[in-house]
Amino acid sequence: MTGPEVVPAAVAAAAVTDPELPMLTLADLGILRGVEESAGAVTVRITPTYSGCPAMEAIRADLIGALRRAGHRRVEVRTVLDPPWSTDWITPQGRRKLAAAGIAPPGPAPRRSPGPVPLTLGARPAPVPCPRCGQPDTERLAAFGATACRELRRCPGCREPFEHVKEI
């Protein structure tokens, strides 16, 4: 059954890429929460980035397909909701890959203080440097981008528009 061609489940699962940010693996993105092998069965735990992330179906199918190709026949993919995903879980390698693809990686996720969530009304957030020319601050064009996790920005230096992964 487990011939030399079998790739360890943790290695195969960690190499699966995100369908919407294909430069990142699930491990880079921090949504792969665990891979366990027991008695010939593999259990993979993943967490969604956002509640409505439509990529979860594709990620589930990709994981099962990749693990089967790696020689694992019995695969279960489980959803983990707690603790909720944070952009702080994107690995340093993931951040480098985002920047190399022209997407500004997130800064530190907002810290929660006791009491109600404050409404900032556009109070100046931390500056986002341009991933192309390195200009230290850029302007936001739209708070919501092509996917739930990204916003649109523009660099006043090189005039290029770019995407930024929102801190969450």
């Binding site: 956002y50 909701l81 707690d82 909720p84 969530v117 929102k166």
Partner: peptide, 23 residues
């Protein structure tokens, strides 16, 4: 625990929604 986890995730999303509507 399921309701608590759904809520914790939703709070992060709704914080962005509220900023958008308020602005």
């Amino acid at each position: 625990p399921v309701l608590a986890a759904i809520a914790a995730k939703g709070v992060k999303e709704l914080t962005y929604h509220r900023e958008y509507a308020a602005q």
